[in-house]
């Protein structure tokens, strides 16, 4: 090996080390200069998440992918069952319906809502799925003009909460 080759190799190594130091200094100053900013860490997290997804996808087998379609078909987006129960008490549903889990809800004017999740129809006119249930709670008279159930002025948010509570009522 000639002197020239050795010198260029040495120069290359020094250049690589120097540029590395300069780049990491620059990144460090930039990162520290902005409070709460951690671009390197964030990039690492993003990369980690991405890779985790890939590994999961690689490892997944058909039987351990959770796909409970029945569960998903009875899930109301943005519905909180706890708030739903409170709202059911406030709108006075219990004066006509039996609603298990709601205090003093033992009405006998309309259908008993025990096991509502497993009913096929809502009010005898709509199929029992979340979108239709929310719509029914908001305006029952639109779907069943002769119904005795009044439009209670339920907002969509409230209807979603109440629907999600009704879907916690399972049949035997």
């Amino acid at each position: 090996m000639s002197d020239r080759d050795r010198n260029s190799g040495l120069l290359g190594t020094v250049f690589a080390i120097l540029s590395g130091v300069i780049v990491s200094l620059a990144v460090g100053v930039w990162a520290l200069g902005t409070p709460g900013n951690d671009p390197v860490g964030a990039a690492a997290v993003t990369a980690g998440t991405f890779m985790e997804g890939k590994f999961r996808w690689l490892r997944a087998e058909p039987e351990n992918v959770p796909q409970d379609w029945v569960e998903i078909s009875k899930t109301v987006r943005g519905g909180d069952p706890q708030r739903g129960a409170t709202l059911i008490a406030q709108y006075g549903c219990g004066s006509c319906h039996v609603v298990p889990g709601v205090a003093r809800a033992h009405g006998t004017v309309g259908p008993d809502l025990s096991g509502f999740r497993d009913r096929a129809y809502i009010g005898g006119v709509l199929s029992n799925e979340p979108g239709d249930l929310v719509d029914w709670l908001m305006n029952p008279t639109t779907h069943a003009p002769d119904t005795a159930m009044p439009d209670l002025g339920v907002t969509e948010t409230d209807a979603r909460h109440m629907a999600s509570y009704l879907y916690t009522l399972r049949g035997s």
Binding site: S95, C96, A148
Partner: peptide, 10 residues
């Protein structure tokens, strides 16, 4: 309205 209707009906 809901409680009124329920009251009248039963």
């Amino acid at each position: 309205r809901g409680n009124l209707a329920g009251w009248i009906a039963d």
